[in-house]
Computed example of a mutant assay.
Amino acid sequence: MPYQNKVDPWGQINAVKSRGMFLGNRGMLHNTSKEIVSVHKIKGWVTCLLEFKGRKREIMAPNTYTELFFLDEATAFSAGHRPCAECRRERYNEFKEKWLSANSHLLEGNKPTIANIDKVIHQERLHKKEKITYSTNFGALPDGTMIRRDSNAYLIWKNKLYLWTFSGYSLADIKIEKNDVVKVLTPKSYVKMFSNNFVPIIHDSI
């Protein structure tokens, strides 16, 4: 059986075989039987490289963070994660600059530290362990945003919708007008950041 450590656009952690393009973590979420027993332990949910400086890890080893996996960066952002400051330093710096440019008012006068940014993002991602979503016009959403329709997640990319799965995307045969109201999975501050020319990394199935 595959480990329960693959993250979907809702931020839920699933047991599937597909690994994806990125690693990440939210702290130690597993027990000694390598079972997921917590949604998160920290507010700084990060997205990491699959390989970094030759480091090797045992999956769900005792007393260490739980390795989570994401199809791509758009999936990770939808789930509420952000780039790691260690293994993805350049991307992290770009993220912080673009996030602050689009969302500094959300800090309400607090210092522009990553800890304070993480606090804002945490308020956008979860309410009582449930995914926070919101509704807006389809035409207001930039590339890289994930939306929910029925029970599925779709990626907006180059004026088209792509059905998300753990193994990749497929072009969706759905027509949505610009003024149609849709349910958004990607946190609001990330959507604003995407509108500020920050483009998430997309799986090559597109």
Rank of each mutant, 00 (worst) to 15 (best):
M1Y: 04
D8A: 01
P9I: 05
W10Y: 09
W10G: 02
N14C: 11
K17T: 14
K17W: 15
R19L: 05
F22P: 01
G24S: 02
N25S: 11
R26F: 02
G27A: 07
L29K: 07
L29Y: 04
L29H: 06
K34L: 10
I36E: 01
H40E: 14
W45H: 11
T47Q: 11
L49I: 11
E51D: 05
E51R: 06
M60L: 12
M60K: 10
N63M: 08
N63L: 07
T64Y: 10
T64D: 15
F70G: 05
D72T: 08
A76V: 06
F77W: 03
S78T: 00
S78Q: 04
S78W: 02
G80D: 07
A85C: 06
A85T: 11
E86G: 09
R88H: 08
E90I: 14
Y92P: 04
N93L: 13
F95M: 02
K96H: 01
K98E: 13
S101A: 15
L107R: 03
P112C: 03
T113H: 10
T113Y: 00
I117R: 03
K119W: 08
V120A: 12
Q123C: 15
R125Y: 07
H127G: 03
K129C: 09
K131V: 07
I132R: 02
Y134D: 01
F138Q: 12
F138T: 07
A140V: 14
A140R: 14
P142W: 03
P142G: 07
D143Q: 09
D143R: 08
T145R: 06
T145Y: 01
T145S: 02
M146F: 11
R148P: 08
R149D: 12
S151W: 13
A153T: 01
Y154R: 10
I156W: 03
K158L: 14
Y162L: 08
L163K: 08
W164G: 00
S167K: 09
S167H: 04
Y169F: 15
Y169I: 10
S170A: 12
S170W: 10
A172L: 05
A172H: 00
D173Q: 13
D173N: 15
D173V: 15
K175F: 15
I176R: 06
I176E: 13
E177I: 04
K178D: 10
D180Y: 12
V181E: 15
V181P: 09
V182Q: 11
V184K: 04
V184E: 05
L185C: 06
P187T: 10
K192F: 02
F194I: 00
S195P: 03
P200C: 12
P200Y: 04
P200M: 13
P200I: 06
D204M: 04
D204F: 06
S205K: 11
